[in-house]
C-alpha cells in the first residue's frame, strides 16, 4: 500500500501537466462545437487517472484514442453539414485524392530522398523500395477511406469492389496510373509492373480495413 502511494507520487512528480497538446489541437480541429468540451473532458479525466501510474502509457493511450476516434468524428461532422450522399462521396473522393497526392509528394518522395541521403549513392534500388513501400501505405489508406465512406453493407464485399472501389480508385489514382503508363516518364517496365502488382492488393487490403472500421462505427 505504502509502496503504491510512493509509486503514484513518483509518477505524478514526473507526469506532464496535461494531455499532449498536438492531439488536443487535432481533436479540436476535427470536432464540431457541440460536444467538443464534453469529449475532451472525458479524455482528460481518464488521461489523469492513467498518468498517475504511467505518464508514458497515458500519452500513448491518448494518442490511440484520438487516432481511433478521428474517422467517427470526421464522419459525424460531415453528416452534420447535411451533405447529400453524392456530395459526401465527392468530398471523400477529393479527400482521398489530395491525401494520395500529398502523400506521394511530401511523404513517399521525402522518405526515399532521406534514405538515399543517409546511405550511399549506390542505394538507388533501396530508395525506390522505400518509396514504393510508403506509397503503398498511402494507397491502402486511400482504399480504406473509399470503403469507409462509400461501401454499402447491403451487398457483398466483391460487389462493393466492382461498383464502388474500382471506379473511385480509378478516379483517385488517375494521375499516378497515367504516370505509370506514360512512356515519357522514366519508369522502367519492371517498376511499373511491380507498382501495379502491389497497388491492387494494397487498395483491396485498405478497403477491408475500411469495412472493418465501418462495421465498428455502426
Amino acid at each position: 500500500m505504502a509502496k503504491d502511494t510512493k509509486d503514484a507520487s513518483n509518477a505524478s512528480a514526473s507526469a506532464p501537466l496535461g494531455p499532449p497538446w498536438v492531439a488536443c489541437a487535432l481533436l479540436t480541429f476535427i470536432m464540431d462545437a457541440a460536444d467538443k468540451a464534453v469529449l475532451i473532458g472525458d479524455l482528460e479525466e481518464e488521461y489523469r487517472l492513467l498518468s498517475r501510474h504511467s505518464p508514458r502509457d497515458a500519452q500513448s493511450w491518448y494518442w490511440r484514442q484520438i487516432m481511433r476516434s478521428a474517422p467517427h468524428l470526421i464522419l459525424k461532422r460531415l453528416q452534420s453539414l447535411k451533405i447529400q450522399p453524392l456530395g459526401l462521396a465527392f468530398v471523400a473522393l477529393l479527400g482521398a485524392f489530395l491525401l494520395i497526392y500529398y502523400w506521394d509528394i511530401w511523404i513517399a518522395r521525402s522518405a526515399a530522398r532521406t534514405f538515399a541521403a543517409m546511405t550511399n549513392a549506390s542505394s538507388y534500388f533501396y530508395s525506390r523500395a522505400i518509396y514504393l513501400l510508403v506509397q503503398m501505405i498511402g494507397v491502402a489508406i486511400g482504399g480504406g477511406l473509399i470503403a469507409f465512406f462509400t461501401f454499402s453493407t447491403a451487398v457483398p464485399f466483391i460487389s462493393n469492389i466492382a461498383y464502388r472501389l474500382a471506379p473511385a480508385g480509378l478516379i483517385v489514382f488517375a494521375p499516378t496510373l497515367l504516370a505509370m503508363i506514360n512512356p515519357a516518364d522514366n519508369y522502367p517496365l519492371s517498376f511499373r509492373l511491380l507498382w501495379l502488382s502491389l497497388a491492387i492488393p494494397s487498395l483491396i487490403g485498405g478497403a477491408r480495413g475500411g469495412v472493418w472500421l465501418q462495421a465498428r462505427h455502426n
Binding site: V38, D42, L43, R68, H72, L75, K76, R216, H217
Partner: peptide, 11 residues
C-alpha cells in the same frame, strides 16, 4: 471502445 465511436453512437 474509442471515445469518438461512443459519442457518435450516443448522438
Amino acid at each position: 471502445v474509442s471515445i469518438g465511436a461512443l459519442y457518435s453512437t450516443l448522438s
